[in-house]
Amino acid sequence: MKIYKHFYKIVIKYLTFPSSAWLQILRWNYVILTLLLGINFIAATPVMAANLSDDLLKQPAIQITVSLGNAVNELKFEPNHLEFLAGKRYQLRLTNPSQLKHYFTAKDFADGIWTQKVQAGKVEIKGAIHELELKPGAEAEWVFVPLKSGTYGLRCPIPGHTEAGMTGEIAIKN
Rank of each mutant, 00 (worst) to 15 (best):
K117R: 15
L147H: 11
G153K: 15
R27A: 02
I170N: 05
L134H: 12
P18R: 10
G38S: 01
L85W: 08
F41T: 08
R93L: 05
K173G: 01
Q116A: 01
L154I: 10
H6I: 07
Y14N: 14
D111W: 11
S149H: 11
G160S: 03
Y152D: 04
E141Q: 13
F17P: 02
V123W: 00
M48E: 09
F7K: 15
S20A: 08
K117V: 02
I113F: 03
G69M: 00
A140H: 08
Y152K: 05
V72T: 12
A164V: 06
F41H: 10
E74C: 00
K76R: 13
W142K: 06
N51K: 12
L85G: 01
E131M: 14
D108L: 02
G87Y: 08
Y90D: 14
K88T: 10
K88I: 02
E133V: 07
I170M: 02
N80G: 05
G121F: 04
M48I: 05
I64V: 12
H161K: 11
D55P: 01
G87P: 07
V66G: 02
L92D: 04
G153I: 07
L52S: 09
I39H: 06
I129F: 03
L82E: 03
K107Q: 08
F7D: 08
I125R: 10
G137V: 07
V145G: 06
N40T: 14
I39T: 10
S67R: 13
T45F: 11
N70T: 13
N174T: 09
R27N: 07
L57W: 15
L85N: 13
Y14M: 12
A128D: 09
L56H: 02
K126D: 00
P79D: 12
E163L: 07
N174P: 12
F104K: 08
W114K: 14
V143D: 04
V118T: 04
K101D: 12
F84I: 02
E163R: 09
W142M: 04
Q99L: 11
H6N: 06
W28E: 06
R89D: 07
K9N: 05
N96W: 03
P46L: 05
I10K: 15
P159F: 06
A86D: 00
